[in-house]
Design a protein around this nucleic acid. Structure first.
Lengths: 204, 204
DNA sequence: GGTAAAATCATCTTTTTTAATGATTGTACC
DNA sequence: GGTACAATCATTAAAAAAGATGATTTTACC
């Protein structure tokens, strides 16, 4: 039984690389590629592959959002996240949105094949480095609320508590509470550390 | 006359993609690849290609450093920077270290070929997006002094002025001066904006 | 209907940052 | 020898953030 594979990535070199790596595999059927989320969705309306290799950074929307959308529309399609970065929060995010695996772009042909076959069997696959980083406790993404995230974004944009309060139609005291809760959740003791970490986590 | 091409990139998929894109070109000779700076230098000791396609993010050292090193040892070898990111400061850095061009990883086969032939002719090549971003004035990297950068890094690490003063064996007043000069050069009005920008510029 | 978490606001104190200005010393370069 | 800039330090004042504590109202979920 052949596994049909589709790829969404905005880098031709990566698409071409994967195509080249898979082209002589007789149990893999290459269904094509898209370079953005919109045309991926367009393709899926016509036909559904067994597996989608999905870059987590797409030009029109994030890979995590696309993954969520795809799994809602076509729950049977398996998604494997693809990225150059080995960032725990991003990986977690993809998995929470229904991905079946995560591969780094320095994966070998063997890894790629194993990943596809593993998810086809209904299991999850992480590349060695990705699973290693998942085990690391210290760079865990703090769980912040919707409102806290709003405040975080405004802080990152350089607004003061007073300005943020005005923008969100709440009191300065409340903004302060959210701010302090952010500092506490990120385990930092000032704004600089907060923004640096948040940037690392791709939140801002 | 054939152009011999070598690639340094830690992502197999990209190496494979470029190889596949170039394999049927009769005026391109594929000389091989390295996945890190060290083995690239090792290869160059044996033989020198006409053109090196060089990822700016390598596992063992930065592409900019490697570029500098390569140009010092083998000035005749042309280097083309390669990256997923279209960041003006990084591009500038590569060019200052002797690169002859800059390509994004979403380049098409045509762009790739044009780039190689252009630099072979002794000219410089930028992908459309890269040259566009170079023209943008507003995301220009502020020119900061050595000391300012030291202070910036410590601020980003969450240290207060007092702590920084202690670390650098200077007075708090001086740290303050540097800090204010940073805010002014980055055209922001508080720490949050400073760190966000500095992160964007890859300074921290 | 109860519980937990999120969101809201308040008061108060201390620490830190931002702002405005001015001044001295050293170093690099023409 | 003059100019420009980096690096150093100072004083004073206002604004903002950080730390501690407590309390009420919504919202989501079982």
């Amino acid at each position: 039984m052949k596994a049909s594979v589709f790829i969404v990535d905005d880098h031709y070199m990566v698409i071409e690389g994967i195509r080249s790596l898979l082209q002589n595999e007789k149990n893999i059927e290459w269904m094509g590629h898209a370079t953005n989320a919109a045309s991926c969705i367009g393709f899926l309306k016509q036909q559904q592959p067994d597996v989608i290799l999905m870059d987590v950074n797409l030009p029109d929307q994030s890979g995590t959002d696309l993954c969520k959308q795809v799994k809602q529309l076509y729950p049977k399609v398996f998604v494997i996240g693809l990225s150059t970065f080995n960032q725990q929060p991003v990986i977690r995010n993809m998995m929470e949105n229904g991905a079946s695996g995560y591969l780094l772009k320095n994966a070998t042909r063997e890894e790629l094949l194993t990943a596809i076959l593993t998810v086809m069997a209904g299991k999850t696959y992480f590349s060695a480095e990705a699973s290693l980083s998942l085990r690391e406790q210290d760079n865990e993404l703090p769980l912040i609320s919707r409102r806290e995230k709003e405040v975080l974004l405004l802080i990152a944009d350089g607004f003061t508590n007073a300005e943020i309060a005005e923008k969100l139609f709440i009191s300065v005291a409340t903004v302060n509470t959210h701010r302090k809760s952010l500092l506490s959740k990120f385990r930092v003791n000032n704004t600089a550390g907060l923004i640096k970490l948040a940037t690392r986590y791709n939140l801002v």
